[in-house]
Amino acid sequence: MGLNNEERKPRFLCLHGFRTSAEILRKQVCKWPESVLEKLDLVYLDAPFPAEGKSDVEGIFPPPYYEWFQFNPVFTEYKNFDECLAYIEDFMVKEGPFDGLLGFSQGAILSAALPGLQAKGLALTKVPKIKFVIIIGGAKFASPTLAEKAYSSLIQCQSVHFLGETDFLKPHGTTLLESFVEPVVIHHPKGHTVPRLDEKGLETMLDFVKRIQIVVACDGPVIATEEKEIHL
């Protein structure tokens, strides 16, 4: 039996970090309070390519580990990027619809760029418009060609960005804010990680969730799918 409009939860496709996995991101996000998690429908996806090298989470989280695409030492050239986009879109077609994207690290870089690429008809052309993004430890793509395509116009979807005080990507995540219309920011004292939510962060996150719930409720009827976590 489907949920009606008012009860439908905002549905997010969750993209994990470099050389980690869907299951690892699920464990990281589950540190958030139930008051947040119970209001979102989170679907976790493994990246398409097995890790080609050592993972930074070895000894912390068990394998297998995956990566979305590969890159050169200065992050300006990418391998298997088109294949990555096609893989994500295919999953969204089969398992959607999705309202938004949640990403951490490499998954956050992807999640932040995809709405801009979609708006220009360069990605996710077969699925509904991405309305929301949750960006944790994100950054812009460094390739000038890709950056021009993804960020040349302000990204219109509602967004919340987590910036860690000691995260090596914080300067890049701060620059990313300039590409979004009215971004919401949650600061935390940690490094490159999915942080727990302190009192202020929780208040900000709950306010963001409340606002996107209103958008989802106004979107019109959908065929709701059973809540599930999907691992490929």
Score class of each variant (00 low, 15 high):
2 G>M: 09
6 E>N: 02
7 E>V: 01
7 E>G: 03
9 K>D: 02
11 R>T: 01
18 F>K: 10
18 F>P: 00
20 T>P: 02
22 A>V: 00
24 I>G: 03
25 L>R: 02
29 V>A: 00
32 W>T: 05
37 L>W: 07
39 K>Q: 15
41 D>V: 02
43 V>E: 06
46 D>N: 15
48 P>I: 12
48 P>R: 12
49 F>Q: 13
50 P>S: 11
54 K>V: 15
54 K>I: 14
57 V>Y: 14
59 G>A: 08
60 I>P: 01
62 P>F: 07
64 P>Y: 13
65 Y>A: 10
84 C>E: 04
88 I>D: 02
88 I>P: 02
91 F>E: 00
92 M>E: 05
94 K>T: 11
95 E>Q: 14
96 G>T: 08
100 G>S: 09
109 I>K: 07
112 A>L: 10
117 L>I: 05
118 Q>H: 06
119 A>E: 13
124 L>W: 10
124 L>C: 13
125 T>W: 01
126 K>I: 02
126 K>Y: 02
129 K>A: 09
129 K>E: 14
130 I>W: 06
130 I>E: 07
132 F>Q: 05
133 V>D: 03
134 I>F: 00
135 I>Y: 02
136 I>T: 01
137 G>E: 03
139 A>W: 06
141 F>C: 11
148 E>H: 09
149 K>R: 12
150 A>E: 05
151 Y>W: 10
157 C>P: 05
158 Q>T: 11
158 Q>N: 07
161 H>Q: 11
162 F>V: 04
162 F>W: 14
163 L>V: 14
166 T>I: 15
170 K>R: 15
177 L>Q: 14
183 P>K: 13
186 I>Q: 04
187 H>I: 03
188 H>R: 11
190 K>F: 14
192 H>V: 08
195 P>G: 10
196 R>G: 13
197 L>T: 01
200 K>N: 11
207 D>W: 05
210 K>A: 13
219 D>K: 09
220 G>R: 03
225 T>F: 04
226 E>S: 09
231 H>V: 10
